[in-house]
Simulated assay, not measured.
Amino acid sequence: MSIITTTEQLASFCERLSNVDYITIDTEFIREKTYWAKPCLIQIGHNSKATAIDILTANLDLTPIFQLMRNKKIMKVFHAARQDLEIFYKLMGEIPTPIFDTQISAMVCGFGDSVSYENLILKLFNRPIDKASRFTDWERRPLSQRQIDYALADVTHLCEAYEKLLMQIELSGRQSWLKEEIDALIAPSSYENNPYEAYKKIKSRNPDQKTMVVLRELAAWRENIAKQINIPRNRIIKDMTLLEIAHQRPLTIEELKYTRGLPPKSIHGDRGKEIISAIKLGLNLPKSKWPSPPKKTKLPRGVGPMTDLLKVLLKMRCEDHGVASRLVASASDIELIAGYGETADVSALKGWRREIFGNDAIRLLRAEIALAAGQSKVMTVDLPKITNNK
């Protein structure tokens, strides 16, 4: 059976998997015209065998899948799981657990930053995957056999990848590294989309507090509308137009008409009135409830060269230890270490990251070690201790 279209088939299939140690999972969806991703197909595999569930089938009860997702004895294996987890969170109201993400695991094992599924399979098994159907219309029915084969391949190869990566992580003793990343991935707060946080995603240069409080209300209004009618937020009003309204703060429909880029349907009728109401709501809030502009850390002058040296050290140490540099330190971490040294409050100076990179980063700043190039590679060299002789 390669595709399931009835509740009876689904219940039987999930029952057979209820006692296995792991399953591999992927989803096919469309999102171009909607706020929420619309899932069209769920693929589940085990021991290199897979089945697809056509969840667009009328009257298909997904309860057996949800029970499988809630089974704590079964490891759920995904690749780049965030979008899939968001879909399940929307469908069943919770995050499937426990999970194993092969993209994160590949980073822990040194296969590079955010390695794609096809590149991971190529690196692990020297096996190319046909991704020609990646942008196919998954909502259209009936599905072609080529679509079904493509979808199933996404979870069959994942079985082997999971087993191999799990073995590498256990042999290297890096389970705690992986757990830290997975814990962040499965936090429900990552999938709740608080409308009053939406304004933080809109880029603005040096906004004042009055602009920020109005923008927060406008962005929350737009987010709620987008969720209710299920269309992308920028199809209601684009970010730049929303930011312009927050800057200008029109208080009447007549003033709102002069906003560049605002569609006529967003001026007349209910939407125009709602925009004006959001502006007034923001302006009428007490200043104690206004959001503060994002803080920009002012780095000391002249840290650029040291930042560059630390980036070289990071790349070298990550290659030595076989771990993706993105897991160890971000670009902002590097800048803060260059500017503030030991006092920088960054994850790169804590725990296993400090052991791999942080300790040497501090030693480089203190001129206790230097970077040297030779024999087509970079290495660290201990420097003699400098003493002040008076």
Rank of each mutant, 00 (worst) to 15 (best):
L171P: 01
P384F: 07
G112S: 08
D113P: 03
V108I: 08
K72G: 07
A151Y: 06
M167H: 15
D54E: 03
L62C: 07
E28L: 07
L120W: 13
L365C: 06
P142C: 02
I182M: 09
K123H: 09
D61S: 09
S332I: 08
S2W: 15
A278Y: 06
G341C: 06
A226Y: 01
D149F: 01
I245Y: 11
Y22I: 00
N47P: 04
Q67M: 14
E192F: 03
M240P: 10
M107T: 12
L371D: 07
A361Q: 08
K350L: 05
Y340K: 11
I169V: 02
A367V: 11
L283G: 02
T252W: 00
T259L: 11
A331H: 09
D21T: 09
P291Q: 01
I95Q: 03
I87V: 14
S325R: 14
F100H: 05
F111K: 03
N206D: 13
A246Q: 07
M92C: 11
I225S: 12
R70H: 12
E355T: 11
E244F: 12
T57V: 09
R141Y: 09
L178Q: 12
N193A: 13
T380M: 07
S144I: 04
T102K: 02
V213D: 06
A161H: 08
M379E: 15
K257V: 13
N389Q: 14
H321G: 06
T307W: 00
P384G: 10
E217A: 04
R134D: 10
S116I: 08
V381M: 06
K295T: 09
